[in-house]
């Protein structure tokens, strides 16, 4: 039996077919509270549908975590939010995604400033092969946000401080960013992302390559960053989702199954699939 067959059987057991694609919980927020709004989003890789009719809002100053089994479409969905899927030739996105009421898939919209407003941190730390200083200064420089050396110094220092990395690297800003430890590299990438002052930060399993101590530091950091930014985080760790996020969305087979306040999702999930997943019955 192929994996697909298995999944279909699973769906039948939990009655997802009969329940339509309707999401359980509250995916949408009041207009004044939401920063990014997604309506009826479909994503296809060639012929294959990866995201099936998802509507979801991401609120101001909140951390939204997305959980679900591998291949459920959560990373794909995250990459739609700053059009990173554009770099994949066969990927096609349908639907309506707005950032502050502006359609980000608008033909007239330039993708470059959009990505400056919606930053992203990847699963594997990917510092550029440059010095720590240049890694941070890169974004502000290409967007013309800094003119003088003192400006740049300031941005580098504040970004590193906000990412909690300043104390560890202040004496070796000229050292290559690739020479740092994994956790430091990931915080460097976060610092790099916040240096351009985005409104939303997307994180795609930012701690999956890190040890528990580095993970704890990053989670602490995410909590602090919530004051200024809107954060959407994809994670495989349900404890992490419970620790850092205010709202949690559960994805399954390209569908959004349930969204709700994090403590409600983890204590009283409404949907059978969500309950099965968080109690570890599958996934």
């Amino acid at each position: 039996m192929s994996t697909k067959d298995k999944a279909t059987v699973g769906e039948d057991q939990h009655g997802i077919e009969s329940e339509d694609t309707e999401t359980v919980g509250k995916p949408l927020l009041a207009a004044e509270k939401s920063r990014m709004t997604c309506r009826n989003v479909f994503v296809y890789y060639g012929e294959k549908m990866a995201i099936d009719n998802i509507s979801l809002d991401i609120g101001k100053n909140e951390v939204l975590s997305m959980i679900g089994p591998s291949g459920c479409g959560k990373s794909t969905f995250l990459r739609c939010l700053n059009r990173m899927n554009d770099t994949i030739d066969i990927c096609r996105v349908d639907g309506d995604i707005k950032l502050d009421n502006q359609d980000i898939y608008d033909q007239k919209l330039d993708v470059v400033p959009l990505r400056a407003r919606v930053g992203m941190v990847f699963q594997k730390p990917n510092p550029f092969p440059k010095s720590i200083y240049d890694n941070i200064a890169y974004g502000p420089r290409i967007h013309g946000m800094v003119d003088s050396k003192t400006d740049t110094d300031e941005v580098v220092e504040t970004s590193l401080k906000r990412a909690g990395l300043w104390e560890e690297v202040k004496d070796r800003l000229d050292a290559p960013g690739t020479g740092l430890s994994g956790g430091q590299q990931q915080r460097l990438c976060i610092a790099r992302a916040i240096a351009v002052n985005p409104e939303v930060i997307l994180m795609d399993e930012p701690c999956s390559a890190l040890d528990p101590i580095a993970t704890a530091k990053i989670e602490e950091l995410i909590d602090e960053l919530r004051e200024e930014f809107t954060i959407a985080i994809v994670t495989h760790s349900m404890q992490q989702a419970a620790r850092v996020s205010q709202r949690t969305a559960y994805f399954h087979m390209g569908k959004l199954i349930e969204v709700g306040k994090t403590n409600k999702i983890f204590t009283m999930p409404s949907h059978q699939l969500t309950e099965d997943y968080i109690t570890g019955r599958f996934g």
Binding site: T87, L114, F128, C189
Partner: peptide, 17 residues
């Protein structure tokens, strides 16, 4: 690595940058 390109694009760098 593709991760380098992703990193730069995610910061809003253009292709030539």
């Amino acid at each position: 690595p593709q991760a380098m390109r992703d990193g730069a694009y995610a910061l809003g760098a253009t292709r030539s940058e």
